[in-house]
């Protein structure tokens, strides 16, 4: 069974908050004519935690890059906090949106981890004292304060990922966009990340193949398949539907799968 796309009812705070995201008939085609997204209509409310899942090439990263204005749609409109994403509005939108890239190498480019995390706050002309506080807090949150003087290119993949997330946290964004945040992380760092995402009370969109992370952090899931939204709703409901998951190139989260060790069955007959 394919779930119909439906709108999730927004909270009342939406009317007084600016941290919502609207996609109105958005389509995006890459220069090589690959249709990445087709007629996307979404409304993400203030404070919502939304997981965006889908097989490789489904359009997840493109969707996030459209919100930040890295890409601009050929059709439709994206509105962030009441402001349409256009070339002219990018600076004001980006002031409120934090984005962690899929590849942390793209995000950590300064000479030391400290310099990298401080890069954003310094660009917003904060005093050095304020920069120091924010950077220390962000590094402590990610548990990598001890790496502050290390050059990013000498870090492991997971450490780089943590530094990349810290660099975004230091900006204290109102909307957090994370592209595959748990890839490269060891189990403990991943657990910390999940706790961190759950602490973040503002709007957040997370794309991931780590469906267990999505299950633990998101109250709403959007499934993309070949550039279109094929499901928008509760995570539990969609993760129970193995047939649809199979159709979309996905599998159940491990926590909802049958146990290979004790042979216990979960969600039989769903």
């Amino acid at each position: 069974m394919i779930f119909p796309v439906f709108w999730v009812a927004c909270l009342q705070e939406d009317s007084i908050s600016h941290h919502y995201i609207d996609f109105k008939g958005v389509s995006f085609i890459y220069p090589d004519n690959t249709q990445a997204l087709s007629d996307i209509n979404l409304h993400i409310c203030h404070g919502e935690s939304v997981g965006i899942i889908g097989a490789n090439g489904a359009g997840k990263s493109t969707l996030l890059e459209l919100i930040t204005g890295i890409l601009l749609p050929q059709e439709g409109e994206i509105v962030v906090g009441g402001i349409a994403v256009t070339k002219k509005t990018l600076a004001s939108i980006r002031r409120h949106v934090g984005f962690t890239f899929q590849n942390p190498d793209n995000q950590v480019f300064m000479n030391t981890v400290w310099e990298d995390v401080a890069f954003g706050p310094r660009n917003y002309l904060l005093s050095e004292e304020a920069v120091e506080k924010k950077v220390t807090a962000a590094l402590e949150t990610m548990g990598i304060l001890h790496l502050k003087d290390r050059p990013p290119y000498r870090l492991s993949g997971g450490e780089k990922r943590s530094a990349a997330i810290a660099s975004v946290l230091a900006l204290e964004p109102d909307i957090l966009l994370m592209d595959e945040p748990s890839s490269d992380l060891d189990p403990r760092a991943r657990r910390k990340l999940i706790a961190l995402i759950n602490q973040f009370t503002h709007t957040k969109l997370i794309t991931s193949h780590d469906l267990d992370l999505v299950l633990e952090t998101c109250k709403r899931v959007i499934v993309l398949h070949k550039g279109t939204v094929v499901y928008d709703g509760s995570p539990i409901e969609v993760f129970k539907d193995e047939k649809s998951l199979h159709t979309w190139g996905l599998e159940k989260p491990l926590t909802m799968s049958d146990c290979l060790v004790c042979d216990s069955k979960k969600n039989r007959g769903q």
Binding site: F119, N123, E128, L171
Partner: peptide
């Protein structure tokens, strides 16, 4: 591609063409 991504990452964190080292 990599350079484009780095440039985007810089722009997303408020880069306006001035590098600020923080050193006074």
């Amino acid at each position: 591609d990599a350079a484009t991504h780095v440039y985007h990452a810089m722009k997303l964190r408020g880069f306006d063409g001035e590098y600020r080292s923080g050193r006074r």
